[in-house]
Design a protein around this nucleic acid. Structure first.
Length: 463
RNA sequence: UCCCCUAUAGCUCAAUUGGUAGAGCGCCGGACUGUUAAUCCGUAGGUUCGUGGUUCGAGUCCACGUGGGGGAGCCA
């Protein structure tokens, strides 16, 4: 295995021989007989400085080829750095060009706009920001599994392709092998999906929730963590057509337990970042958003604010100075401006709203005693807004069927979901966390397209 | 999908009421230096997003298209 720069920088074994491989970030020549070579290998934000003296073999033949972007292998002696900016550096004894890099390399030794970097998504992981994003994303992914696994949750793989068009969480992408130039038609002239691969119209999943409930009612606490697809024509800095979602489902649990888990989960993940990604987080605080470190530290150290939808409406009605564009009235859904007011202005921390009016929420959410609200909850955070949406599920067969009919849903389409309520139903609850929104919030990155390696949005699935 | 803004050198941007296309950074050449996105001097680099229109004349004004950004809705 190639040694990583992250480890070399921590070493104090001066005088020892080291080898490193990576990509040239910068070269500063001195005509007085040596040059500074700055190497990054992605293992950490920091670069490794190499001192290359012209006395080493092949210096004059190869040094000119070590342009920004070139890949190199360096062997040399680990030494204590006499200058500021780094503790250790490497005095090269051998330099090898692995892959040259011509001068038209798009990633220059300067600051680039995120818009431009998006157009070179195949090269942007070599930039400081996207290297940091990649490491944070990786650490959070692992922390999510650590969190659930250490609490006995089972990881369940719910399907990507689904033939139940009853998930109701948004527009879906159709998956088909039919000849789009000449599709089979039925007697009404409509496309006949009975000839399609799965024998009926199929889609990419918009949520693993309905499927994962089956395993919750068999194995206890479970979670999913996978790609999710929404064909909504959403053009915002907070929406992707393909994103990753974490959906735990907790058995024998009510909405209170659901909120407890959501809060503990978020605080745990952000705490891990502060602990294990300190250098990258400092970079985001220095270069992207100078409030992220203070925000994360505050969240880890304090409880979320919890209030019911009804209390939130009262709070918003008191906010005379807000001049909301949209009306505030019990029974209406809260707008972005309302949610942000609560989380940014009133409480200045994450807020969990619960017990929403039944008419503005999904069919599967459990109806409360008042018959006006359902046991739903949203976690709101500053700048992003909704980061988690969840609920206690309706576990009473007759109530669920009645609610479906009320909404003109055909219970026959949901037969297996209803079976869970016929055979040994139990109270259960869960939520969905948008992974990219979590990364956005944690890093301060303004556009969600810059926290996923290859963003898919309307009119763009490049790379 | 709706509203607003926007597209000029490899990148980031400037160009007055419509009148010969400019800078910084990067590249290349040179100078200098235990340097830190080094610094200094110089060279090269352009079908001003596309199509059409107005005009003696369009980077600039108008229409349509496409890409990008911000906001809204939908939501995670």
């Amino acid at each position: 295995m190639t040694p990583r720069i992250k480890d070399i920088l921590l070493s104090t074994d001066f005088g020892s021989e080291v080898m490193t491989r990576g990509w040239v970030r910068s070269r500063r020549d001195s005509k007085s007989g040596f040059c500074f070579l700055v190497i990054n290998d992605g293992s950490c934000l920091a670069d490794l400085q190499i001192i290359v003296d012209e006395s080493i073999p092949g210096y004059h033949e190869s040094i000119g080829g070590l342009l920004t972007g070139a890949s190199v292998e360096i062997r040399g002696e680990l030494v204590e750095s006499p200058a500021k900016g780094q503790n250790v550096e490497v005095k090269a004894t051998e330099i090898h060009l692995i892959g040259s890099c011509p001068p038209e390399y798009p990633l220059q030794k300067k600051r680039h706009s995120f818009e431009f970097l998006r157009e070179i998504a195949h090269l942007r992981p070599r930039s400081n920001t996207f290297g940091a994003i990649s490491r944070v994303r990786n650490r959070l992914s692992f922390a999510i599994h650590e969190f659930f696994q250490s609490r006995g949750f089972l990881y369940v793989h719910t399907p990507i392709v689904t033939s139940s068009d009853c998930e109701g969480a948004g527009e879906m992408f159709t998956v088909t092998t039919l000849d789009m130039e000449n599709p089979p038609k039925d007697s009404n002239g409509k496309v006949d999906f009975s000839h399609d691969f799965f024998g009926k119209r199929s889609h990419l999943t918009v949520s693993g929730q309905l499927n994962v409930e089956t395993h919750c009612l068999a194995l206890g606490n479970v979670y999913t963590f996978g790609p999710t697809f929404r064909a909504e024509n959403s053009n915002t800095s907070r929406h992707l057509a393909e994103f990753w979602m974490i959906e735990p489902e907790i058995a024998f649990c009510d909405l209170g337990g659901d909120m407890d888990l959501a809060e503990e989960f978020l605080r745990h993940l952000l705490g891990v970042l502060l602990e294990d990604c300190a250098a990258d987080m400092k970079f985001f605080n220095d270069r992207i958003d100078n409030t992220v470190l203070a925000t994360l530290e505050h969240i880890v150290a304090s409880n979320f604010e919890r209030l019911s939808y009804t209390e939130a409406i009262d709070e918003l009605l008191k906010a005379k100075s807000a001049n909301f564009e949209y009306p505030v009235k019990w029974g209406l859904d809260l707008q972005s401006e309302h949610e942000r007011w609560l989380t940014e202005k009133v409480f200045k921390k994450p807020v969990i709203l619960y017990d929403y009016p039944r008419d503005i929420k999904a069919f599967y959410m459990r109806q409360n005693e008042d018959e006006k609200t359902v046991a739903a909850m949203d976690v709101l955070v500053p700048k992003i807004g909704e980061i988690i949406g969840g609920s206690q599920r309706e576990d009473r067969h007759d109530v669920l069927v009645a609610r479906m009919k009320e909404l003109d849903l055909n219970p026959d389409d949901y037969w297996w979901y209803l079976d869970l309520r016929r055979y040994g139903s139990v109270p259960h609850a869960g939520f969905g966390l948008g992974f990219e929104r979590l990364i956005q919030f944690a890093t301060g990155m303004q556009n969600i397209r810059d926290v996923i390696p290859f963003p898919r949005v309307p009119n763009n699935a490049s790379f």
